[in-house]
């Protein structure tokens, strides 16, 4: 499995981007592990981590010649390399799963939006157009 990485440091965290390519003629499952000193902040959809991500990395399947473009963040300083392929194995055909996380990901988040809880004090201080007192 070929793996190319790069890092960007921003606001005390490191953004890691990875391109993984399967150069072989057979589909393969692989595990990418984070080498930085901190927990993986995975990409999220509707609040839930994308499929394949966990605290220490990512697990996925690539067909022959296919590529994955991956990105995550870690609250730590960069190291070289920031991530590596821990293992690969021949892949089985993935079965559609009926699990809770994938269901949660594929439906809309039922929780009220964060904006509902905006503090009135913060709003007043941050709004330069506001001149009068609020009731």
């Amino acid at each position: 499995m070929d793996c190319v990485t790069s890092t960007t440091e921003i606001g005390g965290a490191t953004l890691v981007s990875v391109i993984v390519e399967n150069p072989h003629d057979e589909p393969a499952r692989y595990r990418l592990t984070n080498e930085l000193d901190g927990p993986v902040w995975p990409p999220r959809r509707r609040g839930y981590p994308e499929r394949g991500w966990d605290e220490s990395g990512y697990e996925g399947v690539l067909g022959p010649g296919e590529r994955d473009a991956l990105g995550y963040a870690v609250p730590a300083s960069p190291v070289d390399p920031p991530a590596r392929i821990a293992w690969t194995e021949p892949a089985e055909v993935p079965e559609p799963s009926r699990d809770t996380r994938s269901t949660a990901r594929s439906f809309r988040d039922p929780r009220p939006p964060r904006s509902v809880f905006t503090s009135p004090r913060w709003e007043r201080d941050s709004n330069p157009l506001e001149t009068g007192d609020r009731p």
């Binding site: 509707r46 009926r98 809770t100 269901t103 949660a104 594929s106 439906f107 809309r108 988040d109 039922p110």
Partner: peptide, 15 residues
């Protein structure tokens, strides 16, 4: 289960 088709309606059906 709640009405609608959000995750909170779907999750109890999965369970």
């Amino acid at each position: 289960a709640p009405a609608g088709f959000d995750a909170d309606a779907a999750l109890p059906i999965v369970a």
